[in-house]
Amino acid sequence: MDLDTVRTFVAVADTGRFQEAAAELSVTQQAVSKRIAALERALGVRLFTRTPRGAELTIDGQAFLPHARELLRVSERAVASVRTGRRPLRVDIIASRGAASGLMRGFHRTHPEVDLDVVMLFAIEKAVAAVRSGEIDASFRAVAAPGRPLPEDIESVRVLDEPLHLLTGPAHALAGARSVTVAELVGHRIWMPGIVPGTEWAAYYDDLVAAFGLTIEATGPNFGSDALLDTVADTPALATFMGERTLPRLPRDGGAPGVGPAGLGLRLIPVTGPTPVYPHALLWHRDNPHPALATLRAHLATAAAGPDTAGTWVPDWVIPR
């Protein structure tokens, strides 16, 4: 159904006169008459009766009017969904409990006027394709993994270096330490069942193992973070790596027993000498015109912080800061 014709019908119904509807729509009265006639032919009914007072809706016109208004509202929503500056800013954060999620929550608190649509894509290939197609405006990733250079039309900037901490239960041999060096972790079992081969975080941890001779086990099903915390809390021989911003409610520096989710007595211990940091980067298409994307980038440039690069470690394939 032609929306200009429907818009003309609504204008005549609201003004009660063809001439006034023509002035409102900036067309001739003859054009209004032709549009209404075409709509009546398409519907097979009379919509208006001409009277000395103007144009009055017939019973069929009265029945059609609310649906015509809804057609116009749907059309406006459809255009707004893709019109730059009117549709929400669509951002991929990978996971709901990670550092990127925290960064976006901070952005929302600082800029509540920006409508956000947060999505979670898994594979970096899918995220990059979505950025290139305009399906999403930006994605948080650790780039670029070995053998995966970004396309030339994708821009990226490293926005946050998140220090890794060792997470242990209360009976772990290192639970009382205020900090541990990477060398002190050699020989300890670090369990990370969420590592998926082929992902950028798998490439990161593979390089971490190769660089420092660590033992990272990715065996067993991944039942989520709650199950991971329960297992680490109950198994003295196991520890895991946790990003500093992933679970900020956990105790640090050998906090008091019983602090943390459900009183598990978990410890979140800084790793030093050097500090492995997970490099979160923002990806976007260089031709993306969404005005809120520039607002997000400016916010991250000041709000997202990480340790000084001195004394830290990242794989050599990570984009520089």
Rank of each mutant, 00 (worst) to 15 (best):
A183L: 06
L72T: 11
V180Q: 02
P66K: 00
L229T: 05
P170D: 14
A294F: 00
L47N: 11
R46S: 04
L208M: 13
V32T: 15
H285M: 05
R50L: 15
R86H: 06
G176V: 10
D207W: 02
A256P: 10
T199S: 03
F9S: 02
I93L: 13
A144H: 03
A99D: 02
R286K: 14
R252P: 02
S179G: 03
P315W: 09
L264S: 13
E113A: 05
V10Y: 10
V180A: 03
H172W: 08
R189T: 12
R41K: 14
R86C: 03
G54M: 13
P315H: 06
G194S: 13
A171L: 09
V143C: 11
T199E: 05
V74S: 11
P248L: 14
Y278G: 02
R53L: 12
A175L: 11
A305V: 11
L293Q: 04
E56C: 09
L283E: 11
L185R: 11
A227C: 05
A210P: 12
P291D: 06
N222P: 14
S225F: 15
L166G: 01
R69M: 13
P170I: 05
W317M: 00
L250T: 05
R41N: 13
P279L: 07
R69S: 09
T275W: 10
S96H: 15
D92H: 05
V45H: 10
A99F: 14
E125I: 06
T84S: 08
A237P: 01
A218R: 08
D308W: 00
A301C: 04
R97I: 07
G311W: 02
G255P: 13
L164P: 01
L71S: 05
R35T: 03
R249P: 04
H285K: 06
V131T: 06
A173E: 12
T240Q: 04
T246P: 07
V209R: 13
H165F: 11
L264G: 04
Q29L: 04
T272A: 00
V119M: 10
W313K: 03
S139P: 00
G147A: 14
R41V: 11
M1H: 13
A310G: 01
F64S: 07
G254E: 02
E155H: 06
L121P: 08
V131Q: 00
P112L: 10
E217D: 15
T15G: 07
Q29Y: 02
H172N: 13
F223W: 09
G187D: 06
Y278M: 12
A22H: 04
P197M: 01
A13V: 01
Y204E: 09
V271Q: 00
H67T: 04
G243S: 09
R252A: 07
I136H: 07
L150Y: 08
H111V: 11
F18I: 14
E125T: 00
G306T: 12
T8L: 15
E125V: 04
L25W: 14
S133D: 03
T110A: 15
H165A: 07
F140E: 11
D308C: 03
E135L: 12
A303Q: 00
S75V: 01
R35L: 02
D117L: 13
V277I: 10
P315K: 10
V74I: 15
K126P: 01
N222D: 15
R267T: 10
I319R: 09
A129I: 06
A99T: 15
A23K: 04
P163L: 08
H108T: 11
Q29S: 14
V27M: 15
